[in-house]
Amino acid sequence: MVLSRKRWFVRFLKWPDLVMAATAVMALGVLYVSLWQPAGQAAELQVLVDNEPLLSAPLSHNQTFSVEGTLGTSELEIRDGKVRFVSSPCRNQVCVHHGWASHSGELLACLPNRIALVLEGEAAVNDIDAVNF
């Protein structure tokens, strides 16, 4: 099976090489489409009002903003990848008491005002499916 002396010179590119290279590139393309998400992708905050998605915002961008619930205006703050209710027109203030939420799988809601916050993405960061409280 070893090369004989007269065929000693090997060509770098033959058609089987090209076929293999093309296969590799195609496989890579499929893998990228199916698997790859850019590393370090910022987690996202989804805001639902009365069970309807209202808006989503990246947790990488610090900001405060207001959301209109069924009761009134809730103030939300995003800082350093975390989010919290600054204020809410509810009586029990459970949402404000909860404080910061930063991990995907954490839930934060103001029931009376029908506002729910859902943190999504980058489960790899903490490897936790849900927070028990």
């Binding site: 991990h103 799988g105 839930l107 903490n126 936790i128 849900a130 927070v131 028990n132």
Partner: peptide
């Protein structure tokens, strides 16, 4: 499945490669 009712959890089965993993606040 993992059902999370305001921080109270009911788990069935597991993830493909590992059990459901939770953190207690």
């Amino acid at each position: 499945l993992l059902l999370n009712g305001g921080g109270d959890l009911v788990a069935v089965g597991q993830r493909p490669s590992r059990p459901w993993r939770i953190a207690v606040r």
